[in-house]
């Protein structure tokens, strides 16, 4: 069980939706038949303060209830955290860090404390503005995480997300299409460096 377990750590700032994205990932992984954990780490809660959230995704139940210190993947929802938080701490070299940024992986590599693994970037803010009309980067980030980690099949992910959007936006179906486009665009656009 633990051999197949995928552990993900999210870094964001309070109010940006990192916790929401973490819980969304738990939702979609659950829908695809996995065992999931999605939990935020609570510190002094305030808008803009660095926050952390975690996912464990596995075939069988995971009983561990500690934070994640050696993640397979790290997601950075706010690029400015790169100089404030050691985001790649404990990150497995065979994993990847996925950063919300308009820069290339090569440009960000110097800020990653010599992390030897894969660096991926996605301009989730721009995609979100383009398709949703405002900067709410968490759904495009989620798509990039699914693409890079392969933790859920892409088709399955898109189908589950469509269902979840149709449910969530039952009273405003016009936003469903924009959200789906944002996901697809993000999966196409995510840049994976070496």
């Amino acid at each position: 069980m633990s051999d197949k377990m995928v552990e993900i750590r999210w870094h964001g700032r309070g109010g940006q939706g990192a916790k929401t994205a973490c819980l969304l990932l738990a939702d979609v992984a659950f829908s695809s038949g996995k065992h999931v954990q999605g939990f935020p780490e609570y510190g002094p809660e305030r808008m803009g303060a660095p926050i952390t959230a975690y996912n464990r995704i596995s075939e069988g139940r995971c009983t561990i209830h500690s934070n994640i210190y050696e993640p397979d993947y790290v997601v950075v929802v706010d690029e400015t955290l790169l100089t404030a938080v050691d985001v790649t701490s404990g990150l497995k070299p065979e994993g990847a860090v996925i950063i919300n940024s308009d820069k290339s992986p090569e440009e960000l590599k110097p800020f990653l404390a010599g992390y030897p693994g894969k660096v991926a970037t996605i301009d989730a803010g721009r995609i979100s503005e383009e398709f949703l009309g405002k900067n709410i980067p968490n759904t495009p980030m989620l798509a990039a995480v699914v693409k890079v980690s392969g933790v859920i099949g892409e088709e399955q992910f898109l189908a589950d997300m469509e269902q979840s959007f149709r449910h969530k936006f039952a009273d405003k179906p016009q936003v469903v299409e924009g959200n789906l486009q944002a996901l697809k665009k993000s999966m196409e656009e995510v840049k994976v460096g070496s």
Binding site: L23, A26, D27, F30, H35, V36, Q37, G38, F39, P40, Y42, R61, H65
Partner: peptide, 11 residues
Amino acid sequence: DGFITSHAVEN
């Protein structure tokens, strides 16, 4: 346990 289970989503 506060937060550890109260705020964690699990199957």
